[in-house]
Design a binder for these strands. Structure first.
Lengths: 244, 244
DNA sequence: TAATAATGTGTGTATTTTACGCAATGAAAA
DNA sequence: TTTTCATTGCGTAAAATACACACATTATTA
C-alpha cells in the first residue's frame, strides 16, 4: 500500500515540491481505454453510453478513476475487465489529457491506454451501458473530450502498425493474406498492391504457413497463416518500419 | 477556473464513474520536464539536486505538482520557467508514470514532458538546487524513479530524431554539417559515414547555405547552414523517417 | 464447361541506400 | 616556403529495396 497521506498539501510539504502550500481543489486521475477491433473488414472501437447524466446520450470511452493503491497499468486492465469482462490482452499507454475544463464535474486528468484485439476471439462478457463495437468511420457524438482522445489514439494506431506488426492481434489465430491486407487497408485507409503487400510480409518472415486453406469462401481459397510471435520477439530490434 | 469540488468523492458521484464511492487517499499529479541540450559534442540533460530531504544527495528532474487551474502543457512550461528561467521552447508530452510506490511521500502520478534546446542560445537564468547540464552518459544517482523516466525519454529522443529533424533545435542557428553529424552521432550513439550523412540531409532540402564559413577551426573550415523551418513545416507530412 | 473472382508467382525498372575514392582547402609543422 | 595533416566537398558504382505490372492457377457458380 502507498503511504497514507491525509491530503494533497501534506504531499506538497513532504516532497518539498515548489508550489506554495495553498488550499487547492483536488485533482482527480482517471484511466481511459481505447480498444480497437476488426470485423467484417472494418476497424472498430469499443464504446459505451456515458454514465454521466448530462451526457447520457453521448458515447464514451471505457474509463474509471484510478484507485489509490493501483498502478496505472493495473488500473487500465481492471477497467477493461470490469467494463467488458475481457482480460488476456496487451494494453499500451498512449497519452494523458488534462485540460482544465475537459471534465464537467471537476478537474480530472485522464491517462489513456490503447489495445488491439480480435473481436471473434474476445467475446464481450458484459454489455452494460450499451457496450458495443462501433465503426471508427462513424465515431461521433462523444462525451467530454473523448472524440479528441479517440482521434489521437487512431493516429497512434496508424503509426504503430507501421513500426510493429501489431495488426496480427486484430486477426484470428489463422488468417489469410487477404484478411491481413484488408486489415492494414482499414487501419491506414489506403489501397495497397496485393502482390507487393504479399512480398513485404513474406520477407519479414513472421508468417507461418499452417498448411490449411480457407473454408466457405466463394472463390479460390487462400492459404492460412499464423503469426510467429517467437521469431518476432527475437528480431524486433531490427524491425524499424513497415512502409507502404 | 475549474469547477470547484470539495473532494474526490464528489467527483466520483458527479461523474458516475464506476468505482464504489469510498474513503480514499488522494492521488496527486505532478509534471516533470526532461530537457536535452548539446554542447562540446556531448548530449546533456538538465538536472537539479532533489529538494526532498531524504533524497538530498540525489539528482532529480525538473518537476512540480500540477496546479488545479492549470492545463498539463501550461504546467510543464511554468515549471521550466520557474526552475530555469527558460521560456520560448517547445515541450512535448512523452509518458506518464504512476507506480504506487514511486514517490516516498505518497501517491503521485507524474506526467513527463521532453524538450531539446541549444545550450548556447538558452542560458539558464536560475541556478538554484545546483541546476546544471549533465552528460547523458553519466546520469546516475537519481531520486525516486527518475532514472527510469530519464531512460524512457532518452529512448523517445532517439526515436524522435529519426522521424523528424528535431535535432536542429539543439544546434546554434548557424552550424556546420560536421556539427550536425556530431549531434546525431551523440544522440543515436552510432558512427555515420560523413559523405552519406551529407547527401541525406541535402536531399531533405531543409538546409540553407548562409554563405559563411566556420571561424577559428584548426582545419579547413566548413560552410555554415541554417535550418529552413518554413520549408520543413510545409513538407513534414511527406517526411516519415530519417534512417541511418 | 465457360465465366468469374480470387490466389500465387514472377519480372523489370526506378529509387534509395551503402561503401568508398579522391581532389581541394586551410592550418600547422618542418 | 614547402610539406604534412586533418577535414571539407564532390562524386561514382554496386547493392538493396520499393514499385508497377503480367500472367498462370484454382476454386466457385451459372
Amino acid at each position: 500500500m502507498a503511504q497514507k497521506v491525509t491530503n494533497i498539501n501534506s504531499i506538497k510539504t513532504l516532497t518539498g515540491l515548489r508550489s506554495e502550500v495553498e488550499n487547492v481543489d483536488d485533482v482527480a486521475v482517471s484511466v481511459d481505454c481505447v480498444i480497437f477491433g476488426f470485423d467484417e473488414n472494418k476497424l472498430k472501437v469499443l464504446l459505451i453510453r456515458s454514465d454521466l447524466e448530462n451526457f447520457q446520450s453521448k458515447w464514451s470511452l471505457l474509463g474509471d478513476l484510478l484507485k489509490p493503491d493501483e498502478d496505472l497499468d493495473a488500473s487500465a486492465y481492471r477497467i477493461l475487465k470490469q467494463r467488458t469482462g475481457l482480460s488476456d490482452l496487451y494494453l499500451e499507454q498512449v497519452h494523458s489529457f488534462g485540460k482544465v475544463h475537459r471534465h464537467p464535474a471537476g478537474r480530472v486528468i485522464t491517462i489513456v491506454y490503447c489495445s488491439l484485439i480480435n473481436i471473434q476471439n474476445h467475446r464481450l462478457k458484459i454489455l452494460e451501458n450499451e457496450l458495443h463495437w462501433q465503426d471508427v468511420e462513424n465515431v461521433t457524438d462523444m462525451a467530454f473530450d473523448h472524440k479528441i482522445i479517440f482521434d489521437n489514439c487512431y493516429a497512434w494506431l496508424q503509426k504503430r502498425v507501421q513500426e510493429h506488426p501489431l495488426g496480427f492481434s486484430l486477426l484470428p489465430r489463422k488468417f489469410s493474406l487477404r484478411e491481413l491486407q484488408n486489415l492494414y487497408e482499414a487501419i491506414l485507409n489506403v489501397k495497397l498492391d496485393r502482390r507487393n503487400f504479399r512480398k513485404k510480409f513474406f520477407s519479414m518472415d513472421f508468417l507461418i504457413d499452417i498448411g490449411e486453406i480457407e473454408q466457405n469462401v466463394r472463390h479460390r481459397p487462400g492459404r492460412l497463416y499464423r503469426f510467429d510471435y517467437e521469431k518476432y520477439e527475437k528480431n524486433k530490434k531490427k524491425l524499424f518500419k513497415i512502409d507502404f
